[in-house]
């Protein structure tokens, strides 16, 4: 069995067990790091430029994290397998003029298993009907979000509907028909798609008891923004959903696992095959207890790319698998004179 297959088989077993003690995580993380150094030339060169060899790493938290922007360069794909063996590629969102990050996979077995087991960690009951406010994976094959929704489809409900149309409109009639059946519904979409739904609803729609929602992804590509508390007030007003019936998912195209939280003000938790650190970029060291810094994610399910990812999100760490998300770093946006500084629209 090839080293890649051996590691993948071992990881799949860990995902199924749902437990990964620290020493096992560390041992696996270091083996994956060595494997990625050997098979991922772009990452190998990056680590060499940082003066880091496998011998220099004695614990998982010393593994160099690659910035998400590194996924944006087609000439240096972030892959730990021969690129000609890729079977799937997910792209980050962006306009045609922007460079989009690409996460390549030789197979999606590990990726999909991570999605399923991350969800199972939540221990949620199955609903009667799943309503997706995204397009189905077949319509947007490069969207990791749509693909995740597709993997979740058979898990969350006995039947489902995808109500985001090709023209960008939402088929709210389908949702209204589901509500009329008085069985629990699970709604899943981006925060922006939920705003669109709320705009479409001319009067409140009381979801049946036991219904839930999962929102994710923020407001990418739009000019709309809303504080989370305001968004959740709309969930209550428009759909009758209490905040503890709403889940927020945090992940990104460059990762293979998901972090979830319930309601407002609670921390996100990752599955056992992940770890996080929050780094103060001024010092390069971990932020002090309770202080914000940059989120670094160690995701063993990223076997085929790079396991350690430096995000551009600011967070406060609570443990090595949980954090409070503060949000996207405003400095991560392109900026010049005035572009970043004036955050408030004139009233």
């Amino acid at each position: 069995m090839s080293p890649s297959k051996e590691l993948e088989t071992e990881l799949l077993s860990c995902l199924t067990q749902g437990k990964l003690p620290d020493h096992t995580f560390d041992e696996l993380a270091q083996r994956i790091f060595s494997y990625q150094l050997e098979h991922n030339p772009a990452y190998q060169n990056y680590c060499s430029a940082k003066g880091i060899s496998p011998e220099a790493v004695t614990y998982w938290n010393q593994i160099p994290a690659l910035p998400t922007d590194a996924f944006k360069y087609p000439d240096t794909p972030v892959v730990s397998f021969p690129i000609n063996q890729k079977s799937h590629t997910f792209l980050t969102s962006g306009t045609t003029s922007e460079m989009r990050g690409a996460h390549h996979f030789p197979s999606l077995a590990l990726y999909e298993a991570s999605i399923r087991h991350s969800w199972n960690e939540l221990g949620l009951p199955e609903c009667s009907c799943g309503i997706f406010l995204t397009q189905p994976p077949a319509s947007t094959p490069s969207s990791s979000l749509s693909h995740m929704m597709g993997v979740l489809e058979p898990i969350i409900a006995t039947r489902s509907a995808w109500i985001l149309q090709q023209d960008g409109s939402l088929d709210t009639e389908t949702l209204i028909r589901c509500v009329a059946e008085a069985q629990p519904i699970f709604l899943l979409g981006t925060a922006l798609s939920f705003l669109q739904l709320f705009d479409n609803l001319t009067e409140p729609l009381a979801l049946p008891e036991g219904s839930m929602a999962m929102e994710t992804g923020g407001y990418k590509g739009s000019r709309r923004e809303l504080e989370k508390a305001e968004l959740y007030t709309l969930f209550a007003d428009k759909l009758g959903l209490a905040e503890n019936s709403i889940i927020n998912e945090y992940s990104m195209t460059e990762l293979s696992s998901q972090f979830y939280t319930h309601g407002i003000g609670n921390s996100h938790h990752g599955p056992p095959w992940t770890r996080i650190r929050v780094i103060d970029p001024r010092t390069g060291a971990e932020s002090e207890q309770g202080m914000p810094g940059y989120l670094v994610v160690y995701d063993l399910a990223n076997l085929h790319s790079v396991m350690a990812i430096q995000t551009q999100d600011i967070a406060i760490a609570h443990s090595d698998r949980s954090f409070t998300l503060i949000g996207r770093d405003p400095s991560a946006l392109p900026r010049g004179c005035s572009r970043a500084a004036d955050t408030q629209h004139p009233s």
Binding site: L66, P67, D69, A70, D280, P281, R282, G284, P292, G293, Y294, Q310, Q312, I314, D329, P330, S331, A332
Partner: peptide, 13 residues
């Protein structure tokens, strides 16, 4: 933190 993060990200990329 945000300004330093932008520089750190710029350097590492």
């Amino acid at each position: 933190v945000s300004e330093a993060g932008a520089i750190h990200n710029f350097r590492e990329t």
